[in-house]
Computed example of a mutant assay.
Amino acid sequence: MKGKDKKTCEKHRDMCSISRAIDKIGDSWSLLILRDLGQGLTRYEEFRENLEISPATLSKRLSMLVEEGLVVKKIYQDNPLRAQYVLTSMGQDFMPVLAMIMVWGNEYASPNGTDEQLVEKKTRKEISSNVVNAEKRCPDHV
């Protein structure tokens, strides 16, 4: 980033929670890793196979998610060393945000209609997501 663009970006980080949140979450690979974690994947090889992501990119994104506090790395085997990745409470709190990105993507970025659908874990029944505007829902709200 050059001169003026860098200053503008830094200014927005100081002023805007959206910019700071994007910094914490990362890029599209990080979003897909978080999606996979939310769907129950926990191991490096599972992510690598499911995402078809390079080892260097996956390692970098997982480290960033751990550093930012969305994911914790837990060793489950010593020899050879093996770890699993688990969402922290911060990472779990991001799941509804990710679900809304999915809903938006199904509506505006899926040429063949719905690509993904939320389902209830035990029953496998579809879950519908709704965003509610409190002001519209409660017209007397001041």
Rank of each mutant, 00 (worst) to 15 (best):
L51F: 00
S110R: 05
Q92E: 12
R82K: 14
A56H: 11
Q117S: 13
V103L: 11
T123M: 03
L32I: 01
S28G: 10
K60R: 14
V103M: 09
Q92F: 04
Q39W: 00
E126R: 15
D140W: 08
A134S: 13
S28A: 08
G40R: 00
Q84E: 14
C9L: 15
Q77K: 10
H141G: 14
M95T: 07
Y108G: 13
G26V: 06
D140R: 11
Q77W: 02
E68D: 12
S17Q: 07
S129N: 08
N133Q: 06
A134C: 10
K74C: 12
Y44E: 05
I18P: 02
R124T: 04
V72G: 04
Q117L: 12
N133T: 04
D36R: 06
L37H: 00
K74L: 13
C9A: 15
A83S: 15
L51Y: 01
N79K: 15
E120D: 11
D27G: 15
D115F: 05
M102S: 06
L37K: 00
S59T: 10
A21D: 08
L62I: 11
F94Y: 13
P111S: 06
L87C: 00
I25G: 10
C9G: 14
K2G: 15
M64N: 14
D36F: 03
V66F: 05
D140V: 07
G26D: 05
K136L: 09
E46H: 02
E126M: 09
V86M: 07
P96G: 03
T88L: 00
H12S: 11
I101G: 03
